[in-house]
Write a protein that binds this DNA or RNA. Sequence first.
DNA 1: AATTTAGTTAAGTGTATGCTTAACTGTCTT
DNA 2: AAGACAGTTAAGCATACACTTAACTAAATT
Lengths: 115, 115
Amino acid sequence: MLNESSRLDRAFQALADPARRGMLARLASGPATVSELALPLAMSLPAVLQHLQALEGSGLIRSEKKGRVRTCRLNPGVLSTAEQWLVDRRSEWEVRHDRFEEYVMELKDKENDDD
Amino acid sequence: MLNESSRLDRAFQALADPARRGMLARLASGPATVSELALPLAMSLPAVLQHLQALEGSGLIRSEKKGRVRTCRLNPGVLSTAEQWLVDRRSEWEVRHDRFEEYVMELKDKENDDD
DNA sequence: AATTTAGTTAAGTGTATGCTTAACTGTCTT
DNA sequence: AAGACAGTTAAGCATACACTTAACTAAATT
């Protein structure tokens, strides 16, 4: 079974590499073949393949082979799962922070009462 | 120099571990000491320290020591930098996808014209 | 049929990561 | 002053990661 936590592990892990983020950025503008994805990268093709496996293993992309060319495309679902995790944390923090600001305001109001 | 790409490397790398995400989730609800962060984790204190170093090194948290207790708190800036990267990719994809949907709609309209 | 193209597999290497235990440094409590 | 508490440092170990080269498969071209 692939629980939510290990899905996020894989997704963030996949995102933690500039070559892979480059591939995702490329794929955001449309499907691409393995060679096209490899073109801007200064590494061997097997290395590219390994990055693609990481991306596909995390569910960030999917790919299919037709003849001898494999076409990759972005899979936006996992992208937004990761995004949502970050949004949730940040918004929880912001709520707390707003409350703190309120509290500071209250203190200032009381100070003013004392004048 | 710490460029944007390697900042994202570190941030996503830090996010790719359930223990560290747990710590961030805890810190989203307010500051905490090292021991408090360690409490729910089934690992030694030095291991916890190493995770905290990863988090602080990525800029996701900051911490300060007072007496013998170190207090950690969330640093929301890097969180939203990572979030923004994901949002940008997803929204670019969505724009393209919407255009494709439009295109499909157009095709269907033409089909209907032929009926 | 021979060659080029597109991708794949296998094996090896160096570095990074995630953990451990043991020993240690300050700070607070009694 | 003695001990407990909160955290830290150092060293070691096993696994995972990012790459490489060499050898290979299968599809398209000439």
